Simulated assay, not measured.
Amino acid sequence: MPVYKDDKRGTYYFITRVNGKQIKRRGFKTQREAKLAEAQLLIEAEKSEIDLSNPTFEYVAEEYLKWYKKRRKESSYKRVKSVVEKYLMPAFGNKKINDIRNRDITKFHDTIIEKKFSVATNKKIHVVLSAIFNFAIKNEYTIKNPARTVGNFEGKEKKHVDYWTLDEFKTFIAVVDEFNYYVLFMTLYYSGMRKGEVLALTWGDIDFENNTINVDKTVGKTGITTTKTGNSRIIQMPKFVIRLLSQLKADNNPKMNYVVFGEYKKPLAETTIARKFNAWIKKAGVKTIRIHDLRHSHASYLINKNTVISVISKRLGHSNVSTTLDTYAHLYPSTEKEAVLDMENDFKRADVIEFKAK
Rank of each mutant, 00 (worst) to 15 (best):
T187I: 07
A147G: 09
G262C: 06
A274V: 07
S310C: 01
H318R: 11
V321Q: 10
L245I: 09
I303P: 04
V83P: 02
N210L: 07
T121G: 13
K282P: 09
V150C: 01
F14G: 03
K24D: 00
V198D: 04
P254C: 08
N345T: 04
K124A: 14
K123F: 09
A329P: 03
P238A: 00
E157S: 15
I309N: 04
H330Y: 11
Y68S: 03
S310Q: 12
V3I: 15
Y141V: 10
T324C: 10
L129E: 07
A45V: 03
I112H: 10
R315T: 12
K5M: 06
E74G: 01
A299W: 08
K66F: 09
D162G: 01
R194M: 01
S313M: 02
M256G: 00
I125E: 11
G151S: 00
T323Q: 14
E197C: 01
K358Q: 12
V340F: 14
T226M: 09
L268Q: 12
T106A: 12
R148C: 07
K249S: 09
R243F: 05
F153G: 13
A61Q: 10
T171N: 11
R25P: 00
F277W: 03
L325A: 00
D167M: 08
I273F: 15
V321G: 07
Y59M: 03
L88S: 11
G285L: 11
V161A: 05
F172Q: 05
N54Q: 06
N257A: 01
K144H: 15
K107H: 10
V259H: 14
E197D: 06
W203C: 06
F240M: 02
Y87R: 08
R26N: 10
I105Q: 07
S53P: 01
L244Y: 11
A91N: 02
R32Y: 08
T111N: 07
W203Q: 06
A136L: 12
F185T: 02
Y181A: 00
D251T: 06
L294C: 08
I50A: 05
K123W: 03
V175P: 03
T30S: 01
E338G: 14
V3A: 09
F14W: 09
K239A: 09
G204W: 05
M186N: 11
K159D: 05
L184S: 10
N180D: 14
K21H: 15
